[in-house]
């Protein structure tokens, strides 16, 4: 038993070390375009593995990401912009004095972003998880809408639909990649613990879980609040990467994109979520050549913008038809290496 644990840990350390090395290597050797895509992949990885925790591992169908990501983005942006920058920018209404006063460094900004999202998730948990039944989807869907409407309708806090610009560009591969590694590691640790077991039990058979002493309300709340925390942090990283945010960034489509990622990767698999992110975010970029004229030697097709989305959708349909559980199903990468357990 002892020796097995140590070997596992060596592999984990090796993976993390190579990931860190890759971050350094990419930052110093790759061109900006590739680095930007890698940044996107890193941020969406954080969002995907956390979304997968509530949706896939705990089996509670939620549509929350756009809401919590928006909150994280706005909290971070308001904390990173100084009073001068805010004063200059706020064009619809003057910002409240306390809004002007908000200021923190990047680490704290991300921390507050995550914590604030998490607290909101906690307040949502009480009405939703106490009652049995699938209200989570509707509540989170509505939550996302409400957050967007609040952002538009409170220009003294958010500058309304003009959004916040000139956010200091703190995000780089070290931040996004580093936090992504921490997020994946943290989520995997949760999954491989009694809490992860309980989450899966809730997913598989909630009544049986209760019958085995699992406090299902507590478990669902833990999963939901953890997701919210990481989604808030991800939102903050996104704000500091794009350097400008506005309410129209955080529509239902944002959540839908994440849903595609975790379903494609395999609902319930954390490594699947990572793979799904790389394929969807990286893949969509890689497929840009489909938008342009393509030279087949004898003939050239004209530029057909939007073609890559058509192909992308077709691939998605194909995967859903023939591999309904997604790429990884519920397995993690390490399960693929286990010797013929049947």
């Amino acid at each position: 038993m002892n020796i097995v644990i140590r070997k596992d840990q060596w592999i984990n350390l090796a993976i993390i070390a190579s990931a860190l090395w890759f971050i350094w290597f990419a930052s110093t050797h790759f061109d900006e375009y590739t680095v930007r895509i890698l940044n996107n992949i890193a941020i969406f990885t954080i969002l995907a593995v956390s979304y997968n925790l509530i949706n896939g591992v705990t089996g509670q169908f939620s549509l929350e990401p756009n809401g919590f990501v928006a909150i994280g983005a706005y909290v971070t942006a308001l904390l990173l912009l100084d009073a001068d920058a805010k004063d200059y920018q706020f064009d619809i209404e003057s910002p409240y004095p306390w809004v002007l006063g908000l200021q923190a460094n990047f680490v704290w900004a991300l921390f507050f972003a995550g914590t604030f999202s998490s607290l909101l998730a906690l307040t949502l948990s009480f009405p939703v998880f106490r009652v049995r039944g699938d209200y989570l989807a509707i509540v989170t869907l509505g939550f996302g809408f409400i957050i967007r409407i609040l952002a538009i309708n409170n220009p003294e806090i958010t500058n309304g639909s003009l959004g916040l610009n000139d956010i200091p560009e703190f995000s780089n591969l070290y931040w996004t990649g580093g936090i992504a590694i921490l997020a994946v590691w943290g989520i995997l640790n949760i999954v491989n613990s009694k809490y992860g077991r309980a989450m899966k039990a809730v997913r598989d058979d909630e009544d049986a879980a209760i019958a085995m002493g699992v406090n299902t309300f507590k478990i669902k709340t833990f999963a939901f609040c953890t997701s919210a925390f990481l989604e808030g942090v991800g939102g903050g990283l996104l704000a500091a990467l794009l350097t400008s945010i506005s309410p129209d960034l955080f529509t239902f489509f944002f959540t839908f994109q994440l849903l595609i990622i975790i379903v494609l990767g395999g609902l319930g698999s954390t490594t699947g979520a990572v793979i799904g992110t790389v394929l969807v975010i990286g893949g969509a970029e890689w497929m840009r050549f489909l938008d342009e004229p393509m030279n087949f030697g004898l003939f050239v097709t004209p530029a057909m913008p939007g073609m890559r989305m058509v192909v992308f959708s077709l691939i998605l349909i194909f995967v859903m038809l023939f591999a309904r559980e997604g790429i990884m199903g519920k397995r993690e990468l390490k399960d693929l290496f286990k010797k013929g357990k049947k």
């Binding site: 064009d91 619809i92 538009i152 309304g160 639909s161 003009l162 506005s246």
Partner: peptide, 8 residues
């Protein structure tokens, strides 16, 4: 209020 154009 949801459109930047309108506000400006």
């Amino acid at each position: 209020q949801a459109q930047v154009y309108s506000l400006g």
